[in-house]
Design a protein around this nucleic acid. Structure first.
Lengths: 175, 175
DNA sequence: CAATAATGTTTCACTCTTAAAATATCTTGT
DNA sequence: ACAAGATATTTTAAGAGTGAAACATTATTG
């Protein structure tokens, strides 16, 4: 994570404006590249939030972030989705989706019906019970996220979202 | 750790300025709260980058991000660290650290010596071979991260880092 | 109209992680 | 000094994820 090794891979130093007035308090800033530090912070924040949400989902609903995310994807797709689509959306392997779906179906949260046009694929849909339960979870989930992130000022939030969106777009292109 | 019964976790709506001029193009913006969308993007970006780095570490060095991160922590601590310290730093459970350390020691990447003052704790240090191998990995790792994130303009990078740092601070306080 | 390729899902063996119990060692208060 | 508690690590069982192979179905093409 650290990579205190210096070696220019990209643009020469002159391309980056010299930090005359350091934008950051330089508290734990070693000489590492900006990119490295961004990645570190990104990972830290995501991990922290993910662990918090997972713990609460487990405690309050005896479920998991993966299950919740799957339900969330179905909730916003009234026409359902196939296993592969869900697999792509959640960035999780096919095998994992199979297991997830089996459990969620056994728990009565989702329906799984063979596609009439292509008997290889399943159409996954939220069941009525699933929709209700997801609604409960989603409300709490939203409260938690707001509690975690909401302390940032609205301006900071909007900026952060913009930058993350930008980053995501670059990552898309990179793939 | 309880955001339990609370309708409004934060300030009432009036505290957030009405978006007369939407700061974001509203391309895929459903009505979800800003916080939710930030969390989603954050998770997406982190997952994408993590998977990319992990795949490359596996392919090129037959290792893993967890191993690399552990080595990185030791690399910046010439006096070494205990298991628990590493566990905290990596935000990974103690059990996982035990397994990680055993493998890394077996591979000759790190030394593990009992602390002379406290026989419960181990002092973990990078071995010479470990330091060399970590150096190689760190150089490549840095290149990868720069390739992934570096397409953002220097200004965007600096902004993003600032905002993530701010977020991390809030998360710290929250815990 | 086969043969072959492509696609969607499942299975499998393996790895990693976690939480909690177990173990070992130190620290403290009396 | 010693019981009680705190701290550091390991063990254990269970849960989840992965990539690759297997399997089933559909598409393509010569």
């Amino acid at each position: 994570m650290d990579a205190t090794v210096k070696r220019k891979v990209r643009s020469p130093k002159s391309a980056r404006p010299p930090p005359l007035q350091p934008v950051e308090p330089a508290h734990e800033s070693d000489g590492a590249h900006l990119e490295l530090r961004i990645w570190l912070r990104l990972l830290t924040c995501a991990t922290r939030i993910e662990k918090a949400l997972n713990a609460r989902l487990r405690k309050e609903f005896n479920t998991t972030l993966a299950r919740f995310d799957l339900l969330a994807q179905l909730a916003r797709r009234p026409d359902g989705a196939s296993m592969s689509e869900v697999s792509d959306l959640l960035m999780v392997s096919n095998g994992a989706i199979t297991a997830l779906v089996q459990k969620l179906e056994a728990d009565g949260m989702i329906h799984r019906e063979v596609d009439s046009a292509d008997r290889r694929t399943f159409r996954l849909r939220l069941s009525q019970d699933g929709a209700k339960e997801f609604g409960r979870m989603a409300r709490r989930h939203e409260e938690w996220v707001i509690a975690l992130i909401g302390e940032l000022s609205p301006v900071a939030q909007s900026d952060l979202l913009q930058h993350l969106t930008l980053l995501k777009r670059r990552l898309d292109k990179h793939a």
